[in-house]
Nucleic acid binder design. Structure first.
Lengths: 218, 218
DNA sequence: TAGATTGTTAATCGATTAACAATC
DNA sequence: TAGATTGTTAATCGATTAACAATC
């Protein structure tokens, strides 16, 4: 019965761009700007203006105004709401080595709705310590603790040899989404979401673009 | 005049999948398997078999053999060659904090053709130290040293406030490709390749998939 | 031979971009 | 009013998938 717009049918490509819009809009807000046009966003972010309008239309409650553009603060609130930045999801971190420390230490995740509540490691020397304010527990406790805390998201930051068993433990504990930083393909049940942070893939794409650029200059 | 197949027209999507094939094939090779079928790869990696065949066809020198499949070792060599894994590209790392340390410490980049030759930081306490075998230099030396070493790739792992100036210095030094781990949009000249490692975008996509899964179970 | 597996052509799908009328 | 900017419809582009004949 509300005037809530349905927020389905937002394409995956659009979802991937929303965080960039969010950062951009926050900058504009900080700079004191009240409205911003899709053409300006497109130019600054090197996107197509129609694409920006479509992306924003798919999540904005208020339409943009001809001549004025979009209300910055409203858009930020809309993206917050759509991406769930305004309510925290608990997550656990598996692996308290270099990458794990960097992830736990990066305070920014809270702004993105992610709250790391515990870390796990097999190394006894790390168990009991704290990284970025997160306590490190023994790997054996993983499944039990995850279940007790009712955590649905697991972050894997262990060496590749240990990644599959980390995934298995997370699944055993009841996690439903895995953010995988290890360079291996994980085998998990079909009803578990996996997002691979494939650095090698990123690097491959960057290298090819570099090669193209150098080549075009001959 | 050679029988070299042209390796152009390999789609971006395909390039992004090649590292995953590479890892998969390496596993199979280690397990002593000589050939592998596209159907097996597709099943294990949760891809479509036709897609796998097209991807492999675009970079393989030898076609697959009906009934047998593809020669594992040959495919690995083909991907090595195509992605440049067999010759190292030098890169510099800007930022020797948590993330920078994790990146420098991750030895795996060499396998992906990336050789980090120097790191830079503004913090005097970090200058002169070594992270992951890479020496940390003062930020003021960045442009000069990058130019002298003729480095074409820069990795940005600094806090977001410092990312734009890091990019400016890299460009000044002659870098032509930037791998950006800071959550900000960088403004660089058009002839510079930028690849943003947008964690927030990954997280957004994972969160939405999680929401879908939970929703589908109602 | 029979059947597993290939490569290719055509159909489908999803995302991007172009064109343009509507409007503040 | 004139013009900047919007939202929408149609065209294009690129990637994925289905269908199927070729082949070892």
């Amino acid at each position: 019965m509300g005037n809530e717009k349905e927020l389905l049918n937002v394409s995956k490509a659009t979802i991937g761009r929303l965080p960039a819009y969010h950062r951009y809009l926050q900058e504009k807000l900080d700079a004191g700007e009240k409205t911003v046009s899709s053409t300006a966003i497109a130019e600054d972010l090197r996107l197509n203006a129609v694409q920006v309008r479509k992306d924003l239309a798919s999540i904005a409650r208020e339409a943009g105004k001809p001549k004025l553009g979009f209300a910055v603060a409203d858009l930020i609130a809309d993206i917050d709401r759509f991406l769930g930045y305004d309510n925290l999801n608990d997550a656990v971190l598996v692996g308290a080595g270099g990458l794990g420390k960097a992830l736990a230490g990066y305070g920014g995740f809270k702004h993105y709705g992610l709250n790391i509540v515990a870390a796990f490691d097999t190394d006894p020397a790390r168990v009991g310590t704290s990284i970025g304010g997160v306590k490190v527990f023994a790997a054996e406790e993983l499944a039990r603790l995850v279940r007790r805390l009712n955590v649905l998201i697991g972050i894997i930051a262990v060496p590749k040899e240990a990644a599959q068993s980390a995934a298995d433990e997370l699944v055993k504990g009841g996690v439903r989404a895995i953010w995988n930083f290890a360079p291996v393909h994980l085998n998990v049940p079909a009803n578990i979401a996996v997002k691979n942070e494939d650095m090698a893939a990123s690097l491959a794409i960057l290298s090819k673009r570099l090669a193209e650029i150098l080549n075009s200059e001959k």
